[in-house]
């Protein structure tokens, strides 16, 4: 029942008749997905109920617009495509409704030379209580060809008490490509008074530019996350963090204008002329969105993808 319960809790998506006809299966115009809709914390799934999902997407420039050149979906990983603009927008959806121990998801996307791909998620990903020996795994690989552009803008990942997540984001890009990537984590839902004393989180980011490792992030937070977050030198009681990476020729010129948008709990540095890294901590997921939205709008030069709208 847990699986069904998770899918039904996803709201709106479970009612979708078929994901094959991906054009017609989207939130309606003007509809908003609350980032934090109340729902039950699903209990740990048994071994027999592990979710698997794989999605692969290729984007190619064709007559000035970006179109799908490759598409594969299996298991609980779905990709939806809102009506096309010049960029190709893909909305990832985990139809199992969350990640728990033993689950495994893989997402692979590549923007061919000159293509522009925008990726987001249908809803905030939820990481539910796992059995002690089990961990949910999520692996994402993004590739950007020469002159390509990829905006990786998933909604936040919400971690629940007992959650265990091992996640890896690997990005390989050409030096003249343009990347904006954001990963946001919310440690329990602040408004619901949730506090995490039992968490296992490993989150890795590797960014390679022309084959060279330009940035690596290794987040490792274990056990009493609330205690660590409460430390004044670590997060000072904040419940949400995010890392934003922007890599593009001349990226560093955006450092000062972006800094003007940041709260005091955020920092932004130009690691090189082509690479900006931003970290922010916020009291909760809602505040974090407020901190991120202007930065991401500025970096992408566009409104945030529709599923983000609050």
């Amino acid at each position: 029942m847990h699986r069904e319960g998770r899918a039904a809790a996803q709201g709106g998506v479970a009612a979708c008749p078929s994901l094959i006809g991906w054009q017609g299966c989207l939130p309606q115009e003007g509809r908003t997905i609350p980032y934090d809709q109340p729902q039950m914390t699903a209990p740990a799934a048994s071994a027999a109920q592990r979710a698997r999902g794989k999605a692969r997407l290729g984007a190619r420039l064709r007559n000035g617009r970006t179109a799908i050149s490759d598409l594969h979906m299996s298991g609980s990983a779905k990709l939806l495509f809102p009506r096309p603009k010049d960029a190709l927008q893909a909305v990832y959806l985990n139809s199992s409704g969350g990640v728990t121990g033993g689950d495994a998801f893989e997402v692979e996307a590549y923007a061919e030379p000159g293509a522009h791909l925008v990726m987001t998620t249908q809803a905030a990903e939820r990481v539910y209580r796992a059995l002690p020996a089990e961990t949910g795994r999520v692996e994402t690989r993004l590739t950007l060809g020469a002159g390509a552009r990829l905006d990786w803008l998933p909604q936040e990942t919400i971690l629940f008490e007992g959650g265990a997540l091992d996640r890896r984001l690997s990005i390989d890009m050409a030096g003249d490509a343009r990347l904006t990537a954001c990963e946001a984590l919310v440690f329990g839902r602040h408004a619901m008074g949730e506090v995490l004393h039992d968490l296992r989180l490993r989150d890795r980011i590797d960014l390679r530019i022309d084959g060279r490792l330009a940035f690596a992030d290794r987040l490792h937070l274990q056990d009493d996350a609330a205690g660590t977050l409460a430390h004044p030198a670590i997060a000072n009681g904040a419940g949400a963090v995010a890392t934003v990476i922007h890599a593009a020729p001349g990226a560093a010129t955006l450092r000062d204008p972006l800094r003007e948008m940041l709260p005091e709990t955020a920092g932004l540095s130009a690691l090189s002329a082509e690479l900006l890294v931003l970290r922010v901590v916020s009291v909760d997921g809602y505040t974090l969105r407020g901190h991120l939205a202007p930065v991401l709008r500025r970096l992408s030069g566009a409104e945030l993808p529709r599923p983000w709208m609050i």
Partner: peptide
């Protein structure tokens, strides 16, 4: 693979130092 930690405010302090 045991590399890693979590000290966002220390990272942020270093990112803000040149300001």
């Amino acid at each position: 693979d045991d590399l890693g930690g979590f000290a966002p405010l220390i990272d942020i302090a270093s990112q803000r130092h040149d300001m």
